[in-house]
Design a protein around this nucleic acid. Structure first.
Lengths: 130, 130
DNA sequence: CCAATAAATTAGAACGAATCTAAACTGTTG
DNA sequence: CAACAGTTTAGATTCGTTCTAATTTATTGG
């Protein structure tokens, strides 16, 4: 973990190490800042909300996290850096990955002049079955 | 316009009529609440920001507008109800439609148990060419 | 190992988008 | 046209996020 932070050009401070362990210690996950803060408090990691925000943004800039926007009003951060897409269940706010493997997006028009395609994002919005 | 509001079950008040004209009077468009408010002020339509928000949400619920989330922090509303997708230019915040016709998304996995697919949204994120 | 320095963390203030409140106003109905 | 439900409003409030300035911590060079 220490290595990972150093490689990203980030000083391995107590807070960053602890948060990195929470984020990258298990499998892939999605968190909001508030969620991660609550989790840190539960684990008795002394860290302020400001640092949670700083750290999430630094990790994102360093390419350790991806930001997912599905929900106006808050940001999700995703530890899964593989090529993949998302289910978003509007009713519950649950966000789930699905692999890009098997999914094909064909016929994307060319980017407007002066721009190029950065990323094609697919969001599958779910509702309760009825 | 009056008809359209009545059909949607919304009383055709001064404000709603004026905003409907701004939104639906020309071609398709995208607006944020603040943008629409600024535009209304310019046209000397007396309308509060609260009413802008109320109206946009009522129009959305009535199916006259679609909400587009590309940008954490604010909501866009789109008058284009046809099946289509979006370019989003991160650098400028510009949002543009492209027709779904010609675009195929294949291999979308089945929805998790208890849910069904509401909508498959494709967002093509753009960066400056270079 | 320690002092100096630069970087990181912090509490709390501040911000912007959006919603809420309760009072005033307006469209509709009978 | 009176009564009433629905609408609009200014301003307060909420929420997520960023900023600020002071404190603390990691790194480095001696």
């Amino acid at each position: 973990m220490l290595e990972r932070l150093r490689d990203a050009g980030l000083r391995p401070t107590r807070q960053r190490l602890a948060l990195a362990r929470l984020l990258f210690g298990g499998g892939n996950r999605h968190v909001t800042a508030e969620q991660l803060h609550a989790e840190a408090r539960r684990e008795e990691i002394p860290v302020s909300l400001a640092t949670i925000y700083n750290t999430l943004n630094q990790f994102r800039k360093a390419g350790l996290l991806r930001e997912v926007v599905v929900d106006s009003g808050r940001s999700w951060f995703d530890t899964n850096l593989e090529n993949h897409h998302h289910f978003f269940h509007e009713a519950t706010g649950a966000l789930t990955d699905f692999e890009a493997e098997g999914l094909a997006v064909e016929g994307v028009p060319r980017a407007p002049a002066g721009t190029e395609i950065d990323r094609v994002e697919v969001i599958v919005r779910l509702r309760d079955a009825g």
